Computed example of a mutant assay.
Amino acid sequence: MKSNGQRRSVEVFDTPSGLGGSHTVEVVEDLGNSKVSVRVWYGRATATGWEAWKDWDGYRFETDRASLTNKRSMPLFK
Rank of each mutant, 00 (worst) to 15 (best):
R7I: 03
A52Q: 07
G21S: 14
R65K: 15
K71T: 07
D55L: 10
Y42V: 01
A47I: 12
S3I: 06
V40D: 01
T24E: 11
H23L: 06
G43K: 05
G58P: 04
F61E: 02
D55M: 07
W56M: 04
G32W: 00
D55A: 10
M74T: 13
L68W: 05
S9I: 07
F77Y: 14
A66V: 09
T63G: 01
F13P: 02
S37H: 10
M1V: 11
G43E: 00
T15C: 03
T24R: 14
T15V: 13
N33W: 06
K35P: 07
E11M: 11
W50M: 04
G58D: 07
W56F: 13
D30W: 13
H23W: 15
A52Y: 05
D57F: 08
N70K: 09
S34R: 14
P16G: 06
R7M: 08
G32R: 04
T15M: 00
V27S: 14
E51R: 04
R65C: 00
G49W: 02
D64S: 13
R65P: 03
A66P: 05
P16A: 02
L76A: 06
F77Q: 08
A66D: 10
Y59P: 06
E62M: 10
A52S: 09
V28D: 09
K35N: 12
S73H: 10
V38G: 05
N4C: 11
T24W: 04
R39C: 10
W53S: 09
H23N: 14
S73W: 03
V28S: 14
K71L: 03
W50E: 03
P16M: 03
S9V: 10
S17V: 03
S22D: 15
F61W: 12
V38P: 08
S22R: 10
V25L: 00
R44V: 12
T48I: 03
T63H: 02
Q6E: 14
K35E: 08
D55K: 12
M74D: 08
L19K: 14
V12L: 01
S3D: 09
G43P: 09
E29S: 15
G49M: 04
R60W: 02
A47R: 13
Q6W: 10
W41T: 02
K2V: 08
G20Q: 10
K2I: 09
V38N: 00
F61P: 13
R44F: 08
W41S: 00
V40E: 00
L76R: 06
S37K: 15
S22L: 04
F77E: 02
V40K: 05
S22K: 11
D57T: 01
W53A: 10
T48G: 07
S3Q: 12
A45N: 14
R65G: 01
S67E: 05
K35I: 01
T48F: 07
D30F: 12
R44I: 07
S34W: 08
V12N: 04
R60N: 12
L76P: 06
V10T: 12
T24V: 14
W56Q: 07
D14P: 03
S37N: 13
T15K: 01
G21Y: 15
G5S: 01
T69W: 06
L76W: 10
K54L: 08
K71W: 09
D30H: 15
